[in-house]
Design a protein around this nucleic acid. Structure first.
Lengths: 340, 340
DNA sequence: AGAGTCTTCCAAAGCGCTTTGGTCTTTTTG
DNA sequence: CAAAAAGACCAAAGCGCTTTGGAAGACTCT
């Protein structure tokens, strides 16, 4: 059932039927009702291929997915996707993932924009002065950055959490508890979120006349194994930290294992705070010693990004407003006063 | 730069240019070279919207993503996606995720097929007599099932791993080691993979005159917390199992925690074997006691599914061939002879 | 040499929608 | 009451590609 057939059986022109269906004003209300009714009754659905050829609108949002044999997709992605998908569903949007060589995403961005394959894109895990942000900004396609990319002379729309504030608070708490030697097990420090977290922590320490020693900060991809290694390295130093802030729950698993292997205890010998993106399958309160966290649902962020993308597509949102969500500090058993 | 312009500047018809570019035979080789050359030089790229309107081909493969506030996307998904994306990239395929109400995916399948939004789809986490499989089969769109859906009177193409064989082998090993009371912590037993694993285990036990007691099998969604709970329930029984097979590494985390909480040890009091889908961020060899596993890379499966989808789209693959991959049994420190 | 066969190319008809630029009534306005 | 404005509808021109149904010329064959 296509427009032609439908309009023929209504004895109307395609123009009128199209307009009636798309809510244009120049059509009699009575006629519109007839059309809408008939369309529903016959299950008419405009062919999206035709529509997009005519309008350029696709009803899809895009994401360039870095791939490669040695490229691992971040497990956070799936939670973000849950939120995004949930919102997208309710607004009849689809998501297209365009796999790209991790070292050459630009080609893919250019392709999906030139081909008008999607109405908008989002960018995640941005780095400072991220080329993707600059590119997408000049290409002129609506976009939202999940996270932030510092160091541009232009503004852009983003949704981020207050990573700096979160780790500032975490460190401040630890310092208040008497800790003097803190350490940070961070994610990849080429990414903005990691930089912000480190900055937040340094700021909190500086406020008490302390510093984050070079040997007290690690930057690794967030796996259990790397958490373990980092923790061992930190704790086997001559002056080991008495408190660690850790950028992910997954790495924390490794930290806990290292602590145990070394015959130490949490929080007796070491206080631990980790960032929690709120996975349904791994919860900080269930750690053998319940883990204190800085918590922010990445799923909610996904939904929010989708919402903003939809708003930008339909022209409801404009400008380069960035929004920063506060992060909760949730104190559980894994922190205590510094050992004496 | 579109076809019209390009053909005009070559003083050829759109027909010829189109055919030259698409490798049709009825065009002079010399002419083809000219055309291909000019196309490359001017960076001509056929508009996909137009092409799909004309041909119906989209260059996209589809996946219906169940969503909802209470629906969690399986973390395995992201690994599967890595493999799929990696293959898709090298073949210029995009992936479109169509979010759907988890309780009504049929509407979405019908939509994407009716609208010709994708060239093929894949289905994951199938259940016995899964409605999606039957639906997609009658709708006539090329598809591959990742996993299996038993109980149909028709054949369909799938790629699955030998879940039954894997757990059969795992159980057999445990029995050989003298274990008599085995337990299974399984995934959602409405899904085929879980059913197959349980069946494999029962078969192995039966071969030695043993059985899997009703109170020795749990079926839960695969989270750390559920692994913990299941393990506690099993181990606090009057006749606790001396060995457990577990359907996922994530649940195993919980099992290990439970064992520790109960003051037991692995493998002294309990032998443990888990299924490992090969996550980069959580490795069985790094468990405090290295975990024995049945191993099969879900990422490879993703790549294979993409490969088969591509083959079906281009007509290279036909028929309903199902393939079943063997699973490796990797023995590490978490298994030992039954306690006496 | 005329009929048949390739080879190589083209004009034009879709694909199914949106949108421009009308036309024909009916209503409002000065 | 004539002129202007508004209302309701339509024919046809795109959007940019693929594909059908030739056609013109070169070649082969008897």
């Amino acid at each position: 059932m296509n427009l032609k057939q439908l309009s023929h059986m209504l004895a109307l022109s395609q123009t009128t039927v199209s307009r009636a269906l798309n809510g244009y004003p120049e059509v009699n209300e009575e006629t519109r009702r007839r059309v809408v009714d008939a369309a529903k009754r016959h299950g008419y659905r405009p062919n999206p291929s035709a529509r997009r050829l005519a309008t350029g609108k696709t009803g899809m949002i895009g994401y360039v997915l870095p791939t490669g044999a040695s490229v691992d997709i971040d497990p956070h992605f799936v939670e973000f996707l849950s939120g995004l998908g949930d919102y997208a569903r309710s607004h009849e949007l689809d998501l297209v993932l365009s796999p790209a060589d991790a070292d050459d995403q630009e080609t893919t961005y250019r392709r999906i924009v030139a081909n008008r394959q999607v109405d908008a894109v989002y960018i995640s895990s941005p780095r400072p002065a991220d080329r993707r942000v600059a590119l997408v900004n000049t290409l002129g396609i609506p976009f939202i950055v999940h996270g932030r990319s510092d160091g541009f002379d232009f503004d852009y729309p983003f949704t981020d959490i207050d990573n700096e504030g979160a780790f500032h608070e975490a460190a401040r708490l630890l310092v208040q508890l008497g800790h003097r030697r803190l350490a940070l097990i961070n994610g990849d420090d080429r990414e903005t979120f990691a930089i912000h977290r480190e900055r937040g922590m340094r700021r909190a320490l500086a406020a008490s006349g302390l510093a984050l020693g070079e040997r007290h900060v690690c930057s690794v991809t967030m796996t259990e194994e790397n958490g373990y290694r980092a923790a061992r390295r930190l704790l086997e130093q001559s002056e080991p930290p008495t408190a660690i802030a850790c950028s992910s729950l997954i790495m924390s698993l490794g930290v806990v294992r290292a602590v145990r292997d070394l015959g130490l205890t949490i929080p007796g010998d070491l206080s631990l705070i980790a960032h929690d993106d709120v996975f349904p399958w791994l919860k900080p309160e269930n750690f053998s010693v319940p883990l204190s966290t800085t918590r922010s649902s990445i799923r909610l962020a996904g939904a929010r990004v989708a919402e903003r993308l939809a708003a930008r597509i339909s022209g409801l949102e404009e400008g380069a407003r960035g929004e920063v969500w506060p992060v909760d500090l949730v104190v559980r058993g894994s922190v205590a006063g510094a050992p004496t």
